[in-house]
């Protein structure tokens, strides 16, 4: 038993952190929100091996590697990377689960290499989906599952705006059937679990970044002749944020370790509840500690605050995942 990342996994996370720091994601996020969907960062992430983590080796991937996938998504969340990253990873699991070699051979190598951006409607078995897909107009392929049917889909009209300006949600309708049968239903469940795990990891990273940003701000912002971080009210807010994130992390990595076991769905739900709640609480605290500046669109930390709110209900609301967990415990 060794429940910490090994040196190679840590190095992978650090490499992504460096890459994303150099990319300057706030600028990328704002461009993405403004409709400029440059794929430079997407390609760089693919070259770093992010998408390959969900693609099997026989289709030019390196997966499945759920622990590395979580490690990557924490870093992507930490830098609030825009685009349908979670959706593309889930799509890989969906193709792999459906097991149609022709479809897989067509899409998985491109997906791993970063040449295909894929979006989908999160295939929840419990929740009646509103049939919205993230950034569907940018994607090379949009997927929709209905029962035992897998469809390609097309976006309709203009997107609904999210509180996270970089998240643009499209209503989609089925365009063409891709596969059908019981395998689709099972594949959809597996894809939903993987996507939810990736979203939980992303939330954890968003929360971690917000804590770091806010601790730094509290140490420098001065009022009443001293830094606001000296005030116990502020200290306790930040200690609470830290506590929530510290106990969400082992749930997220623990779920990654349980991938492939019968407990995976249950563990993913526990991880999603804890990580999205911890990130949300941290976002509220970040907003409060920053004061009015944190409430502005122009101030970069508000990009993370808004993402934390959006991810709280993306890929299944906490209430949905608590219900799923309690069902699994019976």
């Amino acid at each position: 038993m060794k429940f910490v990342l090994d040196a190679e996994q840590r190095l992978f996370g650090e490499t992504l952190h460096k890459l994303l720091t150099e990319a300057g994601t706030p600028g990328v996020i704002r461009s993405w929100a403004a409709g400029e969907h440059d794929r430079t960062l997407w390609t760089a992430l693919a070259q770093a091996g992010v998408f390959a983590l969900a693609v099997p080796e026989r289709h030019d991937g390196a997966g499945p590697r759920p622990i590395e996938l979580v490690t990557a998504m924490v870093e992507l969340g930490r830098h609030a990377v825009p685009g349908p990253v979670v959706e593309t990873l889930a799509a890989a699991a969906l193709f792999e689960g459906v097991g149609d070699e022709e479809l897989s051979a067509e899409w998985l190598p491109r997906l791993a290499a970063g040449h295909a951006v894929v979006s989908l409607v999160p295939p929840s078995a419990e929740e009646a989906p509103p049939c919205r897909a993230l950034d569907a107009d940018v994607a090379d392929l949009v997927l929709l599952t209905e029962g035992e049917g897998l469809w390609s889909a097309r976006p309709e009209g203009t997107p609904r705006r999210s509180i996270d300006p970089a998240r643009r949600l499209f209503t989609v309708t089925p365009a063409a059937p891709l596969a059908s049968g019981p395998a689709v239903r099972e594949a959809a469940a597996a894809a939903y679990d993987l996507g939810t795990l990736a979203c939980a990891a992303q939330s954890l990273g968003v929360g971690r970044a917000l804590l770091d940003i806010t601790v730094a701000y509290a140490g420098t912002r001065r009022q009443f002749g001293r830094s606001i971080g000296e005030f116990q009210a502020v200290k306790h807010h930040l200690a609470n944020a830290f506590t929530g994130l510290e106990f969400a992390r082992p749930l997220v990595y623990g779920a990654a370790v349980s991938a492939g076991s019968p407990e995976f769905a249950r563990d993913v739900s526990a991880a999603k509840v804890a990580a999205s709640d911890a990130a949300y609480v941290t976002a509220r605290i970040a907003l409060q500690v920053h004061g009015a500046i944190g409430y502005t669109d122009e101030y970069d930390p508000s990009l993370w605050i808004r993402k934390a709110v959006a991810l709280h209900s993306a890929w299944g609301s906490p209430a949905n995942h608590r219900a799923r967990l309690m069902k699994a415990l019976s």
Binding site: F3, F247, R249, L251, G254, A270, V273, A274, R322, L325
Partner: peptide
């Protein structure tokens, strides 16, 4: 609330392993 307690107990277990 029951779900949250179960989740937190599991979180503490995993934190212990960590």
């Amino acid at each position: 609330r029951v779900a949250d307690v179960w989740i937190k107990a599991r979180a503490y277990r995993l934190k212990g392993f960590e």
